[in-house]
Design a protein around this nucleic acid. Structure first.
Lengths: 117, 117
DNA sequence: TTGGAATGCCTTGAACTGCGAGGTAATATA
DNA sequence: TATATTACCTCGCAGTTCAAGGCATTCCAA
């Protein structure tokens, strides 16, 4: 019955994961670290956010996973599929739209006294 | 113990309401309309979002409400308190920070220098 | 050598937000 | 007279994000 849209502000963790993976095959633990560094600590997503996102992306065919052992460390490496790249673009556009909307809303000076009609 | 931080991406509806009210005393129904117009339809918040935000802001002493009848219409007009102005600034800064973080993450093309520890 | 820190994966339960749907009532418009 | 618009409100769900934990391995310092 009640089919509701996702919150207008969602999909950001998903976008960030896709964006990181788009720059080269990586694994979950590293994605967590890179999002933190890439955003200058502005956005810090824990493993409890990232891993479920990764799994759902893989289930949706947007990521391809493969297990590799590097330096004696067993990791699950992810890379984008074509669908993943498309998804990243769609989310990016959605974000840019929201961002632009916020810019418009916030650029109107906050002081009513400035506006003498 | 069970104290969790709000989601990193929240507080945007609240910020938008404060921002609109900062431009002059208004009422809920109008705020809904103006957010839609201000953001170029990029962000459309329904009454089910706006009214609860207004009430919680008032409860927190960040808005002052007064009932007025204009053109035979009874409305609840809101204006910012000093606390409301401070809150708006804090949320604005938080947003700018997230926005900047996203900009960094999404502009990621080549600089590996970004994530050197 | 032993124990803590870091790496690396995972899930669970709860919190929180945002959302649609619905309800009421007055006024305007056709 | 009916229907649309204005204007207020609340309920309860749905989707997301979160902290907190658990597990196993490897690394390093005491």
């Amino acid at each position: 019955m009640g089919q509701s849209n996702p919150p207008f502000m969602s999909g950001v963790p998903e976008l960030l994961c896709l964006q990181v993976i788009a720059q080269g095959e990586t694994y979950g633990y590293d994605i967590v670290r890179r999002i933190r560094l890439l955003t200058g600590e502005a956005i810090v997503l824990g493993e409890g956010v990232v891993y479920p996102v990764l799994h759902s992306l893989e289930r949706a065919g947007r990521l391809k996973a493969r297990r590799r052992t590097v330096d004696g460390r067993s990791r699950v490496y992810y890379r984008l599929t074509a669908g993943g790249r498309k998804r990243a673009e769609a989310l990016n556009e959605r974000w840019q739209r929201v961002r632009a909307g916020m810019d418009m809303a916030l650029s109107g000076g906050g002081d009513a006294a400035l506006y003498v009609e």
